[in-house]
Design a protein around this nucleic acid. Structure first.
Lengths: 217, 217
DNA sequence: ATAGTATAGGGTGAAAACAGCTTTTTTTAC
DNA sequence: GTAAAAAAAGCTGTTTTCACCCTATACTAT
């Protein structure tokens, strides 16, 4: 029955979670964990050294290469591999963002193991797995006819750098110095990000960026 | 050899992590996972229905009843149970805080499984497990002779409530309204927390509170 | 009784953050 | 080479945050 098992890989930066999940899924006898990786770059390195997985479980916030980038890379280079996003948060933007990046499903880390196994089997058979979490977002997105509202947030490299520096006790003036930019330019970044995240304060921005898995503390 | 195994319980609010970890540790053949729980209150409810564990793996930030409270409760009611704290962050204050609450060790979720098994066995045999992470903090704490510096942060119920409301797009004025307090009283809370966390801005406060595992977003 | 302590509320000035709009410089594309 | 677009910088004014100093009340420990 080995061939009937779904072959998967796990990409997540928390070793205990990654390995624990691997054991948990292996025990289900329906899933075979080929390998696991610390982040996207690690996955790309390991991918050629194993049989091609049917499904890759993908964390979003990771050092070096995050889930969005890694999923896009997979869709460009291995479109036959299905990606199932795994996240702590159920915000609109990361869900829509991971789906747009090419993920076929989105599960919460608060899920039960049986549900995750169902999702993996579903996505392996049908290339997608739409649970209530995802279908709800998609439906509301269509019904409210807000094509931009829940769009994933695209940031320039400088905006992302700024966002990371925002998660600190630094003033904007200090951030400007650190980025070798005028405080006025920092003002532009701030205003752009406030609009993108629909917030009105730096604190709101930071919380929102964390929930949208764009930064990691 | 069943009786030679270390009996443990796992308290953590992320189901997949908790169950994954349980399977991972069970496979080591040196550890027996008696039960797991969602948070401190859930653990208290389940504790009488199982044999007493030797060690409890304890997450810190959890809904309803967090790791600090739960560890204190355990030390008061079941002092013979050893607590091993499990956290994502290596800040001074949660480490000192969990040790002061009664934990016998502190491990990161980024650890390798083998190291966690060692820690569990160590704490079971000796009632404590001091790794480099913990010993370093303790040593620096002594050497620098800063009895207060790294002290865990104690908050009044109102301060905690304020801290949670701080993690948002709300202004202090709005927070004051929501807490039915004068903005001046909110000012007092803010100043007290800025001192306790050694920060100078609301953003710094929020990041610090997250890293110290006092709040959860 | 009263000194100590924790909590709530008050006022003011300065610094930082926020908002909006304009201009210059640099990149990019045709 | 030049037009369009994007990034960086400037200007002005308002709001919020931050810092510091103060008073009042209520609880509590000796």
């Amino acid at each position: 029955m080995q061939t009937d098992k779904v072959n998967i890989a796990i990409v997540d930066d928390h070793t205990l979670f990654r390995q624990g999940l691997a054991h948990l899924l292996t025990e289900s006898n329906e899933i075979n964990v080929l390998f696991d990786a610390d982040n996207g770059a690690d996955m790309i390195r390991k991918l050629p050294t194993y049989p091609l997985p049917d499904v890759i479980l993908m964390d979003i916030t990771m050092p070096i290469m995050n889930g969005y980038e890694t999923t896009k890379w997979l869709k460009a280079n291995y479109p036959e591999i299905n990606v199932l996003a795994l996240s702590m948060f159920e915000e609109d933007k990361p869900i829509i963002g991971m789906l747009k990046s090419g993920a076929g499903g989105y599960m919460l880390k608060q899920s039960k193991a049986a549900d995750l196994v169902s999702a993996i089997k579903g996505i392996s058979a049908q290339s997608f797995y739409i649970n209530e979490l995802v279908s709800g977002k998609l439906l509301r997105n269509i019904q409210n006819n807000q094509p931009v509202k829940n769009a994933p947030i695209g940031l320039s490299p400088n905006e992302l750098k700024f966002l990371e520096l925002c998660c600190s006790d630094l003033t904007y003036k200090q951030i400007a110095d650190m980025m070798n930019l005028s405080p006025h330019t920092i003002d532009n970044y701030r205003e752009a990000l406030f609009q993108k995240f629909e917030v009105k304060s730096r604190t709101g921005l930071v919380i929102s960026a964390l929930k949208n898995e764009l930064i990691k503390i």
